[in-house]
Amino acid sequence: MKTSVRGSARRRAAGAGLAALALAGGAVGCAKGDDESPAMEPAAAVAKAAKNAETITSFRYTMTGKVPDAGRVNGEAAMSVKPPAMSMKITAQDKGADGKVEIRLVDKAMYIGGGAQAAKEMDGKSWIKFDMSALGADKQLNPAQLGAGQADQNPATESTFLTGSKDVKKVGTETVDGVKTTHYQGNVTLDELEASLKGKDKATRKTREKSIAQYEKMGVDSLVMDMWIDGDDHTKKFRMRGDADKGPLDMTITFLDINKPVTVTAPPAKDTVDLAEMMKDASGAES
């Protein structure tokens, strides 16, 4: 039975990675602007929105699209940057009963829930807890495999990537979720993204290099990026497309609000299995 539970844990961890992947590729948006972004050169408009994204401390958003090796996904999430916290519900539409995953990041612990389907495989408990400070001790289950290294990442980082493009252009004006916006688009390679880090401060370089590394691991060489900017010079919607080793990447994130309180609570202990204890028990049973 414990070996089966361990296998279930690995499948749930993989689901977490899909959800965390969907996090990457967004810009922080604001829904209060009444008009599209003021008229200015496309590159300047994108740079201003990217600069504003750096000051965001919390946000809510929806996501939809395709991710490599998972197919169609959609979901919704709320995230606090300071202090780090996150709540996400995501569905991999092509994965059937195993496609629904909920993730919560609270007090340096990540919880992954699979609802009733997971409860059937884990003695009635529907959540798995990962202590992020302890992850990586077992080489067979490291943070990268779990997606834990991405789960607490600020999606606003990717909004700055369009500033690395040399061909940003204005596509037109559109209304997104009731907000008037200006639509911009550009192509950017990973080499251009890395070159754009020149002159940035150490903290900014570290954050952006971490995001760039994700695309490198996916086998993405370049991205087509779209950004919809509102009248307050914030990104309201963001889309990223690219070809990865395991399939197409095409994610659209629409932001609902910014800088409003985000409260995330841990699941009830009675419904939670601690991965560290699970792995310890499984190791003992196999020895």
Rank of each mutant, 00 (worst) to 15 (best):
L135A: 15
T160P: 00
A148L: 12
F59Y: 15
M240D: 02
K32G: 08
Q153I: 12
T265P: 00
G147Q: 05
D230M: 08
K166P: 07
K51M: 12
F130Q: 08
R6W: 00
A85R: 10
K48S: 12
G164K: 11
R239D: 03
D257H: 08
G231E: 04
A22L: 07
V106Y: 07
S4V: 03
L249V: 10
K89V: 12
S222D: 11
E277W: 06
G136F: 06
A19H: 07
I212K: 05
L275Q: 13
D201Y: 06
L146M: 08
L135T: 05
H234Y: 15
A27W: 02
E102P: 00
E102N: 03
M225T: 06
T189V: 13
E286Y: 08
K100N: 02
A53D: 07
K210D: 11
A27G: 10
G247S: 11
S222V: 05
P267C: 13
D257P: 01
A53T: 12
N74M: 13
G284N: 14
M251A: 09
L141T: 14
P248V: 14
A92L: 14
G115N: 08
T157H: 05
A109V: 04
D281M: 15
I90N: 08
L256F: 00
E277H: 05
G29R: 12
M278G: 04
G136L: 10
T173D: 11
M278T: 14
M1T: 10
M251D: 00
K166C: 05
D230L: 11
F59S: 13
T263E: 13
D69H: 07
L105Q: 06
L135G: 01
A116W: 01
Q185E: 14
S4R: 10
G124N: 05
A85H: 05
G17I: 06
A53K: 01
T91R: 14
T204W: 04
L193I: 07
V168G: 04
I112V: 15
K236D: 01
D281P: 00
L249A: 07
A14H: 04
P42M: 15
G75S: 13
A22T: 11
M225I: 15
S37Y: 02
G33A: 13
T160D: 05
